[in-house]
Write a protein that binds this DNA or RNA. Structure first.
Lengths: 111, 111
DNA sequence: CATCCTGTTCGTATGTTCGCGAACATCGGC
DNA sequence: GCCGATGTTCGCGAACATACGAACAGGATG
């Protein structure tokens, strides 16, 4: 047997899955629900929108929408600011660009 | 109140989430784990590979890898053929192209 | 200050994902 | 016909995801 058996696993990790794989998977997870895809597409066209705009369009409870928005926020893809009684959501352009770059690289696409 | 209140929800569905949102979310879900991202990237470079090749590289149990491969197969992104004692996995180019098109459209990227 | 409007958070229920080892299936070779 | 090599499927527990309504928070407005 190998004396350094316990070192093999870390070696495997290094030589296979890297930070970009994890990052891309994290982004893909954020995109892994139709509602979140819709929200991102919606926001990528308009500059910003209110939570209520989305709630009017989507056939889900407000609490559910709020949860999806939080996931997008946690993934760094959107940001929300309290504005009067409403909440204004915008795309986070910096991370959106990073996402485009990562997916583009992975899929062999370009801007 | 509206007399046709019960028709509003289907209307919402039609006017918001469409088939492409669902399709993209389905693909994103397949990409939502680092191991699956790695496998796809690996396969997109080489034409095909054996399950054992991946097992040698990845720090996970074979049964776990098999599960991830099945998910990619269910998503239509890869195909596996039994070849002697091994299993040969290849990218499904047709659906891979469709995935590239969907993501490209969504992200505003071109081939 | 009470109220309304807009969203978020909480609690809960239900199902899905992830990882493993054990057991099983399949095929070539002895 | 049995064995070994290679993967898949099964069964399980822990963790996470999805959805909802009820309850809560914060700011404008009467």
């Amino acid at each position: 047997m190998f004396a350094n058996m316990e070192t093999l696993l870390p070696l495997k990790i290094e030589t296979s899955i890297g930070a970009d794989h994890v990052r891309l998977a994290r982004l893909a997870k954020a995109l892994s629900h139709p509602v979140r895809v819709f929200v991102l597409e919606f926001l990528s066209r308009r500059a910003c929108c209110y939570s209520g705009d989305l709630s009017d369009l989507l056939p889900i409870a407000k609490s559910t929408l709020s949860q999806h928005l939080r996931e997008l926020k946690d993934a760094g893809l959107i940001q929300g600011e309290l504005e009067a009684p409403k909440v204004r959501y915008c795309l986070r352009r910096d991370n959106w660009e990073q996402a485009r770059a990562l997916f583009g690289d992975f899929l062999g696409l370009e801007a």
